[in-house]
Simulated assay, not measured.
Amino acid sequence: MITPNDERSVVALVPAAGRGERLGMSTPKAFVELGGKTLLARAVDGLLASGCVDRVVVIVPAELTAAAAALLPAGVEVVIGGAERTDSVRAGLTAAGDAEFVLVHDAARALTPPQLIESVVRSLRGGRGAVIPALPVVDTVKVVDESGAVTGTPDRAALRAVQTPQGFAAELLRRAYRSESVATDDAALVELAGETVHTVPGDPMAFKITTPLDLALANALVEAGQETSRDVDAVGRGGAA
């Protein structure tokens, strides 16, 4: 548990506007149910259970604000996002106000253990400006050209699969978002701004629910009562943020 003596506030942003097309559902991905509870609600529950998040801000399309507010605990703020994920994070940063630290967490990583969230925050409070959870890559990775021909094989010992929550000193992330850079995740934006991003050990349970197979795995874990278990090495998944 994070010491209560550190009064620097932590605000968690949860962009939840994804359509979930790869999941094969008509419902927006964050609102898909897993064991009787939506992915969004489970992700928020994990943040609150960590004991180190002062506020949670969920960012959704305008037409889903009422639905999101109805399924989330009292005190969780729901704000309107934009057309792109970056627009939604910007809206979340505005809502975060004068927070010292910001976490950006995928609603699709609904089974992320609270201990992992606490680990990210502990590293931020310890002086890191940007912190991401990461797992070693277990598969061999190939680089291919446009024709599909292999052009290289990176050493997987130096590769990591990135998860969320990604944590930042708030001003650092705001500065990165003021740039015109384009990146696939928030940490990459910070890297492009010239800042160092540090890692903490990830957790297999923080896998991203993107495909029907991912959802089936998550359902199996919930049904087995393992949604908070760390003993899931057989899962072997990290996934890109």
Rank of each mutant, 00 (worst) to 15 (best):
K208H: 13
E227F: 02
E191Y: 07
T228Q: 12
P212I: 02
V222R: 01
E223V: 14
H198L: 11
P201Y: 07
D186A: 15
R230M: 08
I209D: 05
D203C: 10
A216H: 12
V222E: 02
L217H: 01
A206F: 07
A224S: 10
M205C: 11
T196D: 13
L192I: 06
I209K: 00
L189F: 04
P212S: 02
A216C: 11
A188T: 11
E227W: 04
P201D: 12
P201M: 05
T199Q: 12
T199D: 11
M205R: 15
V222N: 04
A224D: 05
A187I: 03
P212V: 01
P204Y: 13
A188M: 13
D186C: 15
R230G: 12
V232R: 14
R230H: 15
D231L: 10
D186K: 03
V197M: 11
G194N: 07
G202N: 00
K208E: 15
G194L: 08
D231H: 13
K208D: 13
N219A: 14
T210R: 14
L215G: 02
A216D: 13
V222Y: 02
S229R: 10
T211C: 09
T196C: 11
P212E: 00
R230C: 09
Q226A: 14
A206K: 04
S229G: 11
G202D: 06
D186L: 08
V222Q: 00
H198E: 14
K208R: 15
E227T: 02
G194A: 04
E227K: 03
T196E: 14
L213W: 08
D186I: 06
D186P: 07
V197N: 10
E191D: 10
D214Q: 07
T228F: 05
S229W: 09
D214I: 00
P204G: 03
Q226D: 13
T228H: 11
L221A: 06
K208F: 10
V232H: 09
L215M: 05
G202F: 04
V190M: 03
G202H: 00
E191L: 13
P204D: 09
A216G: 14
L215H: 09
L221G: 04
L192C: 04
V197A: 09
A224N: 02
L217Q: 06
P204L: 01
A224R: 11
T210M: 11
K208L: 15
L192T: 03
D214V: 02
A224L: 07
E195T: 06
A218V: 07
G194H: 08
H198W: 09
A206Y: 06
L221S: 05
T228S: 12
N219P: 02
I209W: 03
A188Y: 03
L213F: 12
G194K: 08
A216Q: 12
P201F: 08
D203H: 14
L221C: 05
F207Y: 01
Q226N: 11
K208A: 13
E191A: 11
V200T: 01
V197E: 09
A224Q: 06
L189E: 05
A188C: 09
Q226I: 04
D233G: 15
G194Q: 06
P204C: 01
A224K: 07
V222S: 02
V190L: 08
F207D: 00
A206M: 06
V197G: 10
T211K: 10
D214A: 05
N219S: 15
A188K: 09
T228L: 12
T210D: 13
A188I: 03
Q226W: 10
A218P: 05
T211G: 10
E223F: 05
L221T: 05
A188G: 12
T210F: 13
A220C: 09
G225W: 00
